[in-house]
Amino acid sequence: MGPVDWLAVGLAALAGAACIHVWYDAVMPLREGQSRVGVLAVVLAMLVVATMMGHNFARVGAERLAEKPWLFWMMPVGFALWFVAPALVIAQGRLAVGWKERALDAAGWVLAFAVMGTVFWGRS
């Protein structure tokens, strides 16, 4: 296992938080009675995700990532598609959220994870 790029972890967390913030403002405006999650909470949550990504990339190793740079997107987007999106769809179904809003929410998270992978790629 190689070293974790902690600067990339921090930058990816900020980029992912910014991405999801812009996504929610542009694509998913608030409905009556809804409120935004605080910015600090979003950044901290994305820091947890970015830490996991940084550890994952360190486990793969710089040499393998240099040989296969698509892994910078395949791993985070795959995680978002196969774990995060289904969890959102199931959880929001319990809250009577419509399918369109669930799909848009999941798409925002897939995009945020792709942006975070791009940050790690840029730092490699």
Rank of each mutant, 00 (worst) to 15 (best):
V89D: 12
V77R: 02
P76L: 01
V84I: 15
L30K: 13
G54T: 09
G38D: 12
L95H: 10
E63A: 09
V48L: 13
V42D: 04
R31K: 14
N56P: 02
V110A: 09
I90M: 13
V49Y: 14
P69T: 05
G98I: 07
M75S: 02
R102T: 03
L47H: 00
V27S: 06
T51L: 09
V48W: 11
G33R: 05
E32L: 06
Q92D: 08
W82M: 11
L111R: 01
M74D: 01
A50T: 07
E63H: 08
H55K: 08
F57M: 12
A114D: 10
R59W: 15
M75V: 15
V110F: 01
M116V: 01
A66N: 09
G61S: 09
T118S: 09
W82Q: 00
F79P: 02
L104G: 15
W70K: 02
G78C: 06
V89S: 10
K100T: 09
M53P: 07
L95W: 06
V60L: 14
I90N: 11
A80N: 05
W82L: 15
K100Q: 13
V37Q: 08
L40Q: 10
L81D: 05
L104N: 03
F79V: 12
T118Y: 07
W109C: 08
I90T: 12
A62N: 04
K68C: 02
L71K: 00
H55F: 13
L95M: 13
L104D: 06
R59L: 08
F120E: 13
A62F: 00
V115R: 01
N56S: 13
G61F: 00
I90E: 14
F79L: 09
L88D: 08
E32F: 05
L65D: 05
A91F: 14
F83T: 07
G33D: 04
M75C: 02
L71E: 02
G38S: 12
A103W: 15
A107T: 08
